[in-house]
Design a protein around this nucleic acid. Structure first.
Lengths: 226, 226
DNA sequence: GAGTCAACGATTTTCGAAAATCCAATGCAC
DNA sequence: GTGCATTGGATTTTCGAAAATCGTTGACTC
Protein backbone atom coordinates (compact mmCIF):
# COMPACT_ATOMS: atom_id res chain seq x y z
CA UNK A 1 0.00 0.00 0.00
CA UNK A 2 1.63 3.12 -1.22
CA UNK A 3 0.98 5.87 1.29
CA UNK A 4 1.50 9.12 -0.56
CA UNK A 5 1.04 11.91 1.93
CA UNK A 6 -0.95 14.28 -0.27
CA UNK A 7 1.48 17.03 0.52
CA UNK A 8 0.21 20.22 -1.00
CA UNK A 9 -3.04 19.62 -2.73
CA UNK A 10 -6.46 18.31 -2.00
CA UNK A 11 -6.36 15.21 -4.18
CA UNK A 12 -3.65 12.85 -5.29
CA UNK A 13 -4.73 13.39 -8.87
CA UNK A 14 -3.83 17.06 -8.55
CA UNK A 15 -0.41 16.13 -7.19
CA UNK A 16 0.12 13.75 -10.07
CA UNK A 17 -0.88 16.47 -12.49
CA UNK A 18 1.72 18.83 -11.08
CA UNK A 19 4.45 16.21 -10.92
CA UNK A 20 3.99 14.96 -14.44
CA UNK A 21 3.61 18.43 -15.90
CA UNK A 22 6.79 19.45 -14.13
CA UNK A 23 8.52 16.40 -15.54
CA UNK A 24 7.48 17.36 -19.03
CA UNK A 25 8.28 21.04 -18.76
CA UNK A 26 11.65 20.41 -17.15
CA UNK A 27 12.66 18.06 -19.92
CA UNK A 28 12.83 14.98 -17.73
CA UNK A 29 10.31 13.46 -20.12
CA UNK A 30 11.21 14.35 -23.67
CA UNK A 31 8.88 15.03 -26.59
CA UNK A 32 7.64 11.77 -28.06
CA UNK A 33 8.52 9.76 -24.97
CA UNK A 34 6.03 7.16 -24.02
CA UNK A 35 4.61 7.61 -20.51
CA UNK A 36 4.12 4.19 -18.97
CA UNK A 37 1.79 3.88 -16.06
CA UNK A 38 4.22 1.72 -14.17
CA UNK A 39 6.89 4.43 -14.27
CA UNK A 40 4.52 7.24 -13.39
CA UNK A 41 3.05 5.29 -10.50
CA UNK A 42 6.52 4.83 -9.12
CA UNK A 43 7.40 8.49 -9.67
CA UNK A 44 4.24 9.77 -8.01
CA UNK A 45 4.04 7.01 -5.41
CA UNK A 46 0.38 6.28 -5.98
CA UNK A 47 -1.95 3.92 -7.78
CA UNK A 48 -3.02 4.04 -11.40
CA UNK A 49 -6.30 5.91 -10.95
CA UNK A 50 -5.02 9.39 -10.04
CA UNK A 51 -2.24 9.10 -12.61
CA UNK A 52 -4.82 8.37 -15.25
CA UNK A 53 -6.85 11.39 -14.25
CA UNK A 54 -3.78 13.61 -14.39
CA UNK A 55 -2.95 12.40 -17.88
CA UNK A 56 -6.49 13.08 -19.02
CA UNK A 57 -6.12 16.69 -17.93
CA UNK A 58 -2.67 17.06 -19.44
CA UNK A 59 -3.97 15.71 -22.73
CA UNK A 60 -6.82 18.20 -22.78
CA UNK A 61 -4.22 20.94 -22.40
CA UNK A 62 -1.94 19.69 -25.14
CA UNK A 63 0.97 18.42 -23.07
CA UNK A 64 0.39 14.77 -23.88
CA UNK A 65 -1.38 12.71 -26.50
CA UNK A 66 -3.43 9.56 -26.20
CA UNK A 67 -3.58 6.59 -28.53
CA UNK A 68 -6.37 4.22 -27.61
CA UNK A 69 -4.98 1.10 -26.00
CA UNK A 70 -1.45 2.34 -26.62
CA UNK A 71 -1.33 4.81 -23.78
CA UNK A 72 -0.07 8.32 -23.38
CA UNK A 73 3.02 10.02 -24.80
CA UNK A 74 4.60 13.43 -24.40
CA UNK A 75 3.37 15.69 -27.18
CA UNK A 76 6.01 16.46 -29.76
CA UNK A 77 7.47 19.89 -30.43
CA UNK A 78 7.57 21.27 -33.92
CA UNK A 79 8.32 24.49 -35.71
CA UNK A 80 4.82 24.46 -37.14
CA UNK A 81 3.24 24.25 -33.72
CA UNK A 82 5.49 26.98 -32.33
CA UNK A 83 4.37 29.29 -35.12
CA UNK A 84 0.75 28.29 -34.57
CA UNK A 85 0.92 28.96 -30.85
CA UNK A 86 2.57 32.31 -31.44
CA UNK A 87 -0.01 33.43 -33.97
CA UNK A 88 -2.86 32.54 -31.66
CA UNK A 89 -1.25 34.19 -28.68
CA UNK A 90 -0.89 37.34 -30.73
CA UNK A 91 -4.54 37.17 -31.63
CA UNK A 92 -5.96 36.27 -28.22
CA UNK A 93 -3.65 38.08 -25.85
CA UNK A 94 -3.66 41.08 -28.16
CA UNK A 95 -7.42 41.29 -27.93
CA UNK A 96 -7.36 40.63 -24.19
CA UNK A 97 -4.88 43.46 -23.68
CA UNK A 98 -6.97 45.79 -25.81
CA UNK A 99 -10.05 45.00 -23.72
CA UNK A 100 -8.10 45.43 -20.50
CA UNK A 101 -6.93 48.86 -21.53
CA UNK A 102 -10.52 49.68 -22.42
CA UNK A 103 -12.03 48.38 -19.18
CA UNK A 104 -9.26 48.41 -16.60
CA UNK A 105 -9.43 50.64 -13.55
CA UNK A 106 -6.71 52.07 -11.32
CA UNK A 107 -6.44 48.87 -9.30
CA UNK A 108 -5.66 46.98 -12.48
CA UNK A 109 -2.98 49.52 -13.32
CA UNK A 110 -1.53 49.01 -9.87
CA UNK A 111 -1.43 45.23 -10.35
CA UNK A 112 0.37 45.66 -13.66
CA UNK A 113 2.94 48.08 -12.26
CA UNK A 114 3.55 45.86 -9.25
CA UNK A 115 3.99 42.72 -11.35
CA UNK A 116 6.39 44.50 -13.67
CA UNK A 117 8.42 45.75 -10.77
CA UNK A 118 8.78 42.30 -9.25
CA UNK A 119 9.94 40.92 -12.58
CA UNK A 120 12.43 43.70 -13.19
CA UNK A 121 14.21 42.96 -9.92
CA UNK A 122 15.59 39.71 -11.31
CA UNK A 123 18.08 39.84 -14.15
CA UNK A 124 17.05 37.39 -16.80
CA UNK A 125 19.73 37.66 -19.45
CA UNK A 126 22.63 36.64 -17.27
CA UNK A 127 24.05 33.15 -17.71
CA UNK A 128 25.50 32.66 -14.28
CA UNK A 129 22.43 33.03 -12.12
CA UNK A 130 21.25 29.91 -10.39
CA UNK A 131 18.40 28.05 -12.01
CA UNK A 132 16.25 28.56 -8.93
CA UNK A 133 16.35 32.28 -9.65
CA UNK A 134 15.57 31.67 -13.28
CA UNK A 135 12.59 29.64 -12.17
CA UNK A 136 11.57 32.60 -10.08
CA UNK A 137 11.86 34.95 -13.03
CA UNK A 138 9.72 32.67 -15.18
CA UNK A 139 7.06 32.80 -12.53
CA UNK A 140 7.09 36.59 -12.31
CA UNK A 141 7.21 36.88 -16.06
CA UNK A 142 4.06 34.81 -16.27
CA UNK A 143 2.48 36.93 -13.54
CA UNK A 144 3.23 40.11 -15.49
CA UNK A 145 1.60 38.85 -18.65
CA UNK A 146 -1.36 37.61 -16.67
CA UNK A 147 -1.75 40.96 -14.93
CA UNK A 148 -1.70 42.81 -18.24
CA UNK A 149 -4.81 41.04 -19.49
CA UNK A 150 -6.52 40.51 -16.16
CA UNK A 151 -9.04 43.32 -16.67
CA UNK A 152 -10.34 42.13 -20.03
CA UNK A 153 -13.59 40.97 -18.48
CA UNK A 154 -13.73 37.68 -20.34
CA UNK A 155 -13.08 34.53 -18.28
CA UNK A 156 -13.08 32.40 -21.40
CA UNK A 157 -10.48 34.55 -23.13
CA UNK A 158 -8.32 34.45 -20.02
CA UNK A 159 -8.56 30.68 -19.95
CA UNK A 160 -7.55 30.42 -23.59
CA UNK A 161 -4.59 32.73 -22.99
CA UNK A 162 -3.47 30.75 -19.95
CA UNK A 163 -3.50 27.52 -21.91
CA UNK A 164 -1.56 29.02 -24.78
CA UNK A 165 0.95 30.47 -22.35
CA UNK A 166 1.70 27.16 -20.70
CA UNK A 167 1.94 25.47 -24.05
CA UNK A 168 4.43 28.06 -25.23
CA UNK A 169 6.35 27.56 -22.02
CA UNK A 170 7.66 24.20 -23.18
CA UNK A 171 9.29 25.81 -26.19
CA UNK A 172 10.79 28.56 -24.10
CA UNK A 173 12.45 26.09 -21.78
CA UNK A 174 14.02 24.07 -24.53
CA UNK A 175 16.21 27.00 -25.38
CA UNK A 176 16.92 28.88 -22.17
CA UNK A 177 20.55 29.23 -23.10
CA UNK A 178 20.05 31.46 -26.09
CA UNK A 179 16.96 33.28 -24.94
CA UNK A 180 18.30 36.63 -23.82
CA UNK A 181 21.32 36.74 -26.05
CA UNK A 182 20.85 39.50 -28.56
CA UNK A 183 17.57 40.96 -27.34
CA UNK A 184 16.72 43.47 -24.69
CA UNK A 185 13.69 41.69 -23.32
CA UNK A 186 13.41 44.09 -20.40
CA UNK A 187 13.09 47.03 -22.80
CA UNK A 188 10.33 45.23 -24.66
CA UNK A 189 8.46 44.70 -21.43
CA UNK A 190 8.94 48.32 -20.47
CA UNK A 191 7.55 49.43 -23.81
CA UNK A 192 4.44 47.32 -23.30
CA UNK A 193 4.03 48.67 -19.78
CA UNK A 194 4.36 52.31 -20.80
CA UNK A 195 1.90 52.15 -23.66
CA UNK A 196 -0.51 50.26 -21.46
CA UNK A 197 -0.41 52.89 -18.74
CA UNK A 198 -0.83 55.56 -21.41
CA UNK A 199 -4.01 53.74 -22.41
CA UNK A 200 -2.62 53.54 -25.92
CA UNK A 201 -4.39 50.35 -26.90
CA UNK A 202 -3.14 50.11 -30.46
CA UNK A 203 0.44 50.83 -29.42
CA UNK A 204 0.40 48.41 -26.53
CA UNK A 205 -1.08 45.61 -28.59
CA UNK A 206 1.48 46.26 -31.31
CA UNK A 207 4.30 46.10 -28.78
CA UNK A 208 2.93 42.88 -27.29
CA UNK A 209 2.60 41.21 -30.66
CA UNK A 210 6.10 42.24 -31.59
CA UNK A 211 7.36 40.86 -28.30
CA UNK A 212 5.87 37.47 -29.04
CA UNK A 213 7.06 37.53 -32.60
CA UNK A 214 10.66 38.18 -31.55
CA UNK A 215 10.46 35.47 -28.90
CA UNK A 216 9.23 33.02 -31.51
CA UNK A 217 11.89 34.08 -33.99
CA UNK A 218 14.63 33.51 -31.44
CA UNK A 219 13.30 30.06 -30.62
CA UNK A 220 12.93 29.29 -34.28
CA UNK A 221 16.58 30.04 -34.91
CA UNK A 222 17.43 27.63 -32.14
CA UNK A 223 15.18 24.96 -33.59
CA UNK A 224 16.70 25.18 -37.04
CA UNK A 225 20.09 24.28 -35.70
CA UNK A 226 18.85 21.39 -33.61
CA UNK B 1 -19.84 -7.89 -13.46
CA UNK B 2 -21.28 -5.33 -15.77
CA UNK B 3 -20.66 -6.39 -19.32
CA UNK B 4 -20.98 -3.25 -21.39
CA UNK B 5 -20.47 -4.24 -24.98
CA UNK B 6 -18.36 -1.26 -26.10
CA UNK B 7 -20.71 -0.64 -28.95
CA UNK B 8 -19.19 1.97 -31.21
CA UNK B 9 -15.95 3.17 -29.75
CA UNK B 10 -12.63 1.79 -28.77
CA UNK B 11 -12.83 2.39 -25.03
CA UNK B 12 -15.63 2.46 -22.51
CA UNK B 13 -14.44 5.87 -21.38
CA UNK B 14 -15.20 7.23 -24.85
CA UNK B 15 -18.68 5.75 -24.69
CA UNK B 16 -19.25 7.31 -21.30
CA UNK B 17 -18.07 10.65 -22.66
CA UNK B 18 -20.61 10.52 -25.44
CA UNK B 19 -23.44 9.34 -23.24
CA UNK B 20 -22.95 11.94 -20.56
CA UNK B 21 -22.40 14.76 -23.01
CA UNK B 22 -25.57 13.75 -24.78
CA UNK B 23 -27.39 13.73 -21.46
CA UNK B 24 -26.23 17.25 -20.75
CA UNK B 25 -26.87 18.68 -24.20
CA UNK B 26 -30.29 17.10 -24.44
CA UNK B 27 -31.34 18.58 -21.14
CA UNK B 28 -31.71 15.27 -19.33
CA UNK B 29 -29.17 16.63 -16.85
CA UNK B 30 -29.96 20.24 -16.10
CA UNK B 31 -27.51 23.06 -15.36
CA UNK B 32 -26.38 22.89 -11.77
CA UNK B 33 -27.41 19.26 -11.33
CA UNK B 34 -25.03 17.17 -9.36
CA UNK B 35 -23.68 14.17 -11.29
CA UNK B 36 -23.37 11.25 -8.89
CA UNK B 37 -21.13 8.41 -9.85
CA UNK B 38 -23.69 5.86 -8.79
CA UNK B 39 -26.24 7.26 -11.23
CA UNK B 40 -23.80 7.60 -14.09
CA UNK B 41 -22.46 4.09 -13.58
CA UNK B 42 -25.99 2.79 -13.87
CA UNK B 43 -26.70 4.93 -16.94
CA UNK B 44 -23.53 3.88 -18.73
CA UNK B 45 -23.53 0.32 -17.41
CA UNK B 46 -19.87 0.36 -16.42
CA UNK B 47 -17.60 0.82 -13.46
CA UNK B 48 -16.45 4.08 -11.94
CA UNK B 49 -13.11 4.39 -13.73
CA UNK B 50 -14.28 5.15 -17.27
CA UNK B 51 -17.00 7.43 -15.95
CA UNK B 52 -14.37 9.38 -14.06
CA UNK B 53 -12.26 9.73 -17.18
CA UNK B 54 -15.23 10.96 -19.17
CA UNK B 55 -16.03 13.59 -16.57
CA UNK B 56 -12.44 14.78 -16.58
CA UNK B 57 -12.68 15.41 -20.31
CA UNK B 58 -16.08 17.06 -20.06
CA UNK B 59 -14.76 19.35 -17.35
CA UNK B 60 -11.80 20.39 -19.49
CA UNK B 61 -14.30 21.38 -22.18
CA UNK B 62 -16.56 23.37 -19.91
CA UNK B 63 -19.57 21.07 -19.77
CA UNK B 64 -19.11 20.17 -16.13
CA UNK B 65 -17.37 21.53 -13.08
CA UNK B 66 -15.45 19.80 -10.32
CA UNK B 67 -15.35 20.57 -6.62
CA UNK B 68 -12.69 18.57 -4.83
CA UNK B 69 -14.23 15.81 -2.80
CA UNK B 70 -17.69 17.04 -3.71
CA UNK B 71 -17.78 15.61 -7.18
CA UNK B 72 -18.92 16.86 -10.54
CA UNK B 73 -21.90 19.01 -11.51
CA UNK B 74 -23.36 20.20 -14.77
CA UNK B 75 -21.97 23.64 -15.55
CA UNK B 76 -24.53 26.40 -15.13
CA UNK B 77 -25.82 28.60 -17.92
CA UNK B 78 -25.76 32.35 -17.57
CA UNK B 79 -26.30 35.43 -19.64
CA UNK B 80 -22.77 36.54 -18.87
CA UNK B 81 -21.30 33.31 -20.20
CA UNK B 82 -23.45 33.42 -23.31
CA UNK B 83 -22.15 36.90 -24.07
CA UNK B 84 -18.60 35.79 -23.33
CA UNK B 85 -18.84 32.78 -25.63
CA UNK B 86 -20.32 34.92 -28.37
CA UNK B 87 -17.61 37.55 -28.14
CA UNK B 88 -14.87 34.95 -28.33
CA UNK B 89 -16.50 33.13 -31.20
CA UNK B 90 -16.65 36.41 -33.08
CA UNK B 91 -12.97 36.95 -32.40
CA UNK B 92 -11.69 33.45 -33.11
CA UNK B 93 -13.99 32.28 -35.88
CA UNK B 94 -13.76 35.68 -37.48
CA UNK B 95 -10.00 35.40 -37.68
CA UNK B 96 -10.22 31.78 -38.80
CA UNK B 97 -12.57 32.73 -41.61
CA UNK B 98 -10.30 35.58 -42.65
CA UNK B 99 -7.34 33.21 -42.82
CA UNK B 100 -9.35 30.64 -44.72
CA UNK B 101 -10.32 33.17 -47.34
CA UNK B 102 -6.67 34.15 -47.56
CA UNK B 103 -5.33 30.61 -47.84
CA UNK B 104 -8.17 28.45 -49.12
CA UNK B 105 -7.98 26.74 -52.49
CA UNK B 106 -10.68 25.56 -54.86
CA UNK B 107 -11.17 22.33 -52.94
CA UNK B 108 -11.94 24.33 -49.84
CA UNK B 109 -14.48 26.37 -51.78
CA UNK B 110 -16.05 23.13 -52.94
CA UNK B 111 -16.32 21.86 -49.37
CA UNK B 112 -18.00 25.08 -48.29
CA UNK B 113 -20.49 25.05 -51.15
CA UNK B 114 -21.30 21.39 -50.56
CA UNK B 115 -21.82 21.86 -46.84
CA UNK B 116 -24.06 24.84 -47.41
CA UNK B 117 -26.13 22.94 -49.93
CA UNK B 118 -26.69 20.04 -47.55
CA UNK B 119 -27.82 22.41 -44.85
CA UNK B 120 -30.15 24.34 -47.10
CA UNK B 121 -32.06 21.19 -47.99
CA UNK B 122 -33.57 21.01 -44.53
CA UNK B 123 -35.94 23.73 -43.41
CA UNK B 124 -34.94 24.93 -40.00
CA UNK B 125 -37.52 27.55 -39.15
CA UNK B 126 -40.54 25.29 -39.31
CA UNK B 127 -42.08 24.15 -36.06
CA UNK B 128 -43.68 20.96 -37.25
CA UNK B 129 -40.65 19.05 -38.43
CA UNK B 130 -39.68 16.03 -36.39
CA UNK B 131 -36.89 16.49 -33.91
CA UNK B 132 -34.82 13.88 -35.68
CA UNK B 133 -34.71 16.20 -38.67
CA UNK B 134 -33.84 19.14 -36.46
CA UNK B 135 -30.99 17.07 -35.08
CA UNK B 136 -29.92 16.50 -38.63
CA UNK B 137 -30.00 20.20 -39.38
CA UNK B 138 -27.89 20.98 -36.29
CA UNK B 139 -25.31 18.54 -37.57
CA UNK B 140 -25.18 20.07 -41.02
CA UNK B 141 -25.16 23.55 -39.57
CA UNK B 142 -22.09 22.64 -37.55
CA UNK B 143 -20.52 21.10 -40.64
CA UNK B 144 -21.07 24.32 -42.60
CA UNK B 145 -19.40 26.47 -40.01
CA UNK B 146 -16.55 23.99 -39.72
CA UNK B 147 -16.06 23.96 -43.47
CA UNK B 148 -15.92 27.76 -43.62
CA UNK B 149 -12.87 27.92 -41.38
CA UNK B 150 -11.30 24.61 -42.38
CA UNK B 151 -8.63 26.22 -44.57
CA UNK B 152 -7.30 28.62 -41.95
CA UNK B 153 -4.14 26.56 -41.53
CA UNK B 154 -4.10 26.72 -37.74
CA UNK B 155 -4.96 23.48 -35.91
CA UNK B 156 -4.99 25.29 -32.60
CA UNK B 157 -7.42 27.92 -33.78
CA UNK B 158 -9.66 25.21 -35.18
CA UNK B 159 -9.61 23.44 -31.86
CA UNK B 160 -10.53 26.61 -29.99
CA UNK B 161 -13.38 27.25 -32.39
CA UNK B 162 -14.68 23.71 -32.05
CA UNK B 163 -14.75 23.98 -28.29
CA UNK B 164 -16.53 27.30 -28.35
CA UNK B 165 -19.03 25.91 -30.83
CA UNK B 166 -19.98 22.97 -28.65
CA UNK B 167 -20.22 25.19 -25.63
CA UNK B 168 -22.55 27.53 -27.46
CA UNK B 169 -24.57 24.53 -28.53
CA UNK B 170 -25.99 24.10 -25.05
CA UNK B 171 -27.48 27.57 -25.16
CA UNK B 172 -28.92 27.02 -28.59
CA UNK B 173 -30.75 23.92 -27.48
CA UNK B 174 -32.35 25.56 -24.50
CA UNK B 175 -34.37 27.71 -26.82
CA UNK B 176 -35.08 25.72 -29.94
CA UNK B 177 -38.65 26.92 -29.98
CA UNK B 178 -37.92 30.56 -30.61
CA UNK B 179 -34.81 30.18 -32.66
CA UNK B 180 -36.00 30.82 -36.18
CA UNK B 181 -38.93 33.02 -35.34
CA UNK B 182 -38.27 36.50 -36.61
CA UNK B 183 -34.98 35.94 -38.39
CA UNK B 184 -34.08 34.70 -41.78
CA UNK B 185 -31.19 32.52 -40.76
CA UNK B 186 -30.89 31.00 -44.21
CA UNK B 187 -30.35 34.45 -45.71
CA UNK B 188 -27.62 35.15 -43.18
CA UNK B 189 -25.88 31.93 -44.14
CA UNK B 190 -26.21 32.77 -47.80
CA UNK B 191 -24.66 36.17 -47.23
CA UNK B 192 -21.68 34.60 -45.49
CA UNK B 193 -21.32 32.06 -48.29
CA UNK B 194 -21.44 34.64 -51.06
CA UNK B 195 -18.91 37.00 -49.54
CA UNK B 196 -16.65 34.06 -48.80
CA UNK B 197 -16.73 32.83 -52.39
CA UNK B 198 -16.10 36.40 -53.54
CA UNK B 199 -12.98 36.31 -51.38
CA UNK B 200 -14.27 39.41 -49.63
CA UNK B 201 -12.62 38.74 -46.28
CA UNK B 202 -13.78 41.86 -44.50
CA UNK B 203 -17.34 41.45 -45.70
CA UNK B 204 -17.51 37.76 -44.88
CA UNK B 205 -16.11 38.26 -41.39
CA UNK B 206 -18.55 41.10 -40.80
CA UNK B 207 -21.44 38.91 -41.89
CA UNK B 208 -20.28 36.06 -39.68
CA UNK B 209 -19.93 38.28 -36.64
CA UNK B 210 -23.35 39.74 -37.24
CA UNK B 211 -24.76 36.24 -37.56
CA UNK B 212 -23.42 35.27 -34.15
CA UNK B 213 -24.52 38.55 -32.63
CA UNK B 214 -28.09 38.07 -33.78
CA UNK B 215 -28.10 34.47 -32.58
CA UNK B 216 -26.93 35.60 -29.17
CA UNK B 217 -29.47 38.41 -29.05
CA UNK B 218 -32.31 36.02 -29.82
CA UNK B 219 -31.18 33.64 -27.08
CA UNK B 220 -30.75 36.54 -24.71
CA UNK B 221 -34.32 37.61 -25.18
CA UNK B 222 -35.38 34.09 -24.35
CA UNK B 223 -33.22 34.06 -21.25
CA UNK B 224 -34.58 37.31 -19.91
CA UNK B 225 -38.09 35.86 -19.83
CA UNK B 226 -37.01 32.62 -18.19
C1' DG C 1 -31.80 29.24 22.83
C1' DA C 2 -27.26 29.57 20.52
C1' DG C 3 -23.04 27.48 19.70
C1' DT C 4 -19.57 23.67 19.59
C1' DC C 5 -18.26 19.13 18.65
C1' DA C 6 -18.45 14.18 17.77
C1' DA C 7 -20.40 10.44 15.14
C1' DC C 8 -22.97 8.96 11.14
C1' DG C 9 -24.35 8.37 6.30
C1' DA C 10 -23.60 9.56 1.68
C1' DT C 11 -20.27 10.24 -1.78
C1' DT C 12 -15.96 10.77 -3.74
C1' DT C 13 -11.34 9.20 -4.24
C1' DT C 14 -7.95 5.67 -4.33
C1' DC C 15 -6.32 1.07 -4.45
C1' DG C 16 -4.60 -3.50 -6.23
C1' DA C 17 -5.82 -7.04 -9.13
C1' DA C 18 -8.35 -8.95 -13.19
C1' DA C 19 -9.59 -8.53 -18.03
C1' DA C 20 -8.77 -6.76 -22.53
C1' DT C 21 -5.80 -5.22 -26.00
C1' DC C 22 -1.75 -4.46 -28.66
C1' DC C 23 2.91 -5.46 -30.53
C1' DA C 24 6.58 -8.42 -31.58
C1' DA C 25 8.38 -12.79 -32.20
C1' DT C 26 7.78 -17.41 -33.57
C1' DG C 27 6.31 -21.15 -36.34
C1' DC C 28 4.28 -22.89 -40.44
C1' DA C 29 2.78 -23.36 -45.15
C1' DC C 30 3.78 -22.27 -49.84
C1' DG D 1 12.58 -16.58 -48.69
C1' DT D 2 7.96 -14.54 -48.12
C1' DG D 3 3.41 -14.16 -46.30
C1' DC D 4 0.10 -15.35 -42.79
C1' DA D 5 -1.78 -17.08 -38.59
C1' DT D 6 -0.64 -17.87 -33.57
C1' DT D 7 1.31 -17.38 -29.28
C1' DG D 8 3.52 -14.78 -25.40
C1' DG D 9 4.72 -10.77 -22.89
C1' DA D 10 4.08 -6.12 -21.92
C1' DT D 11 0.81 -2.50 -21.21
C1' DT D 12 -3.43 -0.35 -21.00
C1' DT D 13 -8.11 -0.40 -19.50
C1' DT D 14 -11.63 -1.74 -16.39
C1' DC D 15 -13.44 -3.61 -12.26
C1' DG D 16 -15.29 -3.94 -7.42
C1' DA D 17 -14.13 -2.96 -2.92
C1' DA D 18 -11.57 -0.27 0.65
C1' DA D 19 -10.17 4.24 2.42
C1' DA D 20 -10.79 9.10 2.80
C1' DT D 21 -13.58 13.07 2.90
C1' DC D 22 -17.55 16.07 3.35
C1' DG D 23 -22.02 17.75 5.11
C1' DT D 24 -25.38 16.92 8.48
C1' DT D 25 -27.63 15.37 12.38
C1' DG D 26 -28.02 15.16 17.13
C1' DA D 27 -26.28 15.50 21.72
C1' DC D 28 -24.17 18.33 24.95
C1' DT D 29 -22.53 22.61 27.16
C1' DC D 30 -22.94 27.46 28.37
Amino acid sequence: MAKAKQSESRTLAADAYRLIQEGIRSGRFKPGDRLRFADLQQLCDMSVTPVREALARLTAEGFTTLDDHRGYSVAGLSLAELRDITANRQLCEGEALRLSILNGDAEWEARVVAAHHLMSRIPQGREDIPSAMREDWEERHAAFHTALISACGSPILLEICAKLFSRADRYRRVSVSIAGASRDVAAEHRAILERTLDRDAAGAVHALRGHYQRTADALEAFFEVT
